[in-house]
Computed example of a mutant assay.
Amino acid sequence: MTDRLEILKTCKAELYSAVICDTLDSLGLRSQTVAPGLAPLAEDMTIFGYARVGLFMPIYHDDAEVNVYEHEIALVDDLKPGEVPIISCNGNLDIAPWGELLSTRAQVLESAGCITDGCVRDVAMIRDMGFPVFSGGRNPVDTKYRGKMMWYDVPCVIGGVLVNSGDMVVADHDGIVVIPSERVEEVVAGALEKVRSENTVRDELRAGSSLAEVFKKHGIL
């Protein structure tokens, strides 16, 4: 199997969410795009990586037995290069499960970024670090007393899409797309073929060809 990091390197150089979405559609995978609403902390942030799922639930107190940070610490400390924490809060915007200290540790471990449907805090510091984060909003509150990661490396749904650890995630200006782990090489190969064909189409359009002409010739629009 092709090295996972080599695949990411190729994707970063040539691909983007729209062409991956089109390729997924062509393979019958038409429910892989996260619903609009999760936004990057800065416009130039993009993510190409492999999911590591963490699943939060609400709580309303904290004590020694709750041990509120145990699973979150374990997940982040176990990140491998190119992996992306996918922090599922079931759309709960009352907590900020991600902040600057977690970003610092993840960046040291060469994580590719973080995606959460919860909120994020320490936004200015994370921007300054250049660590890519997409979130459902911003909120200064800690998860302590409010939420706990109960499981990690289990399936979750985020923005209407089922995500498993090991799936590839691509996030950019257009949105977030999830490629099931068992289809990554197939989808990437198809997307590369499509984007290279689109480059030819673009050149022909710039040379004066009509949309009708290039679509008849290449079947791409």
Rank of each mutant, 00 (worst) to 15 (best):
D142V: 12
M1Y: 11
T10P: 05
A189S: 15
W151T: 15
A42D: 06
A106I: 08
P140Y: 07
V163N: 00
S197C: 14
L41N: 08
V84S: 00
I20T: 02
W151K: 15
A96P: 04
P155K: 00
A51E: 03
V84P: 01
T143C: 12
Y145L: 13
K216N: 15
A18M: 14
T104M: 10
R105D: 05
I47K: 07
I47C: 03
P97A: 03
T10R: 14
P180C: 07
E65L: 15
G219T: 10
E72A: 13
P180L: 00
E6N: 15
F131C: 04
A18N: 14
A39T: 14
L211Q: 13
N199C: 11
G208T: 02
E65R: 11
M1I: 12
L5G: 10
S135Y: 01
L24C: 06
S26P: 09
C156G: 07
N90T: 11
V133C: 04
D128S: 12
L41G: 01
E186A: 05
G166I: 04
S165P: 07
V120C: 07
L41I: 03
S88P: 00
P85A: 09
A51Y: 04
D78M: 14
N199L: 11
Y145H: 11
V84L: 06
V53L: 00
V141E: 12
R146H: 12
V157Q: 13
I20N: 03
V178W: 04
I158R: 07
Y50T: 02
L75S: 06
G147N: 00
I115Q: 01
L79R: 04
G136R: 03
S165V: 05
G37H: 04
V66M: 08
V120P: 02
Y145G: 04
A191K: 08
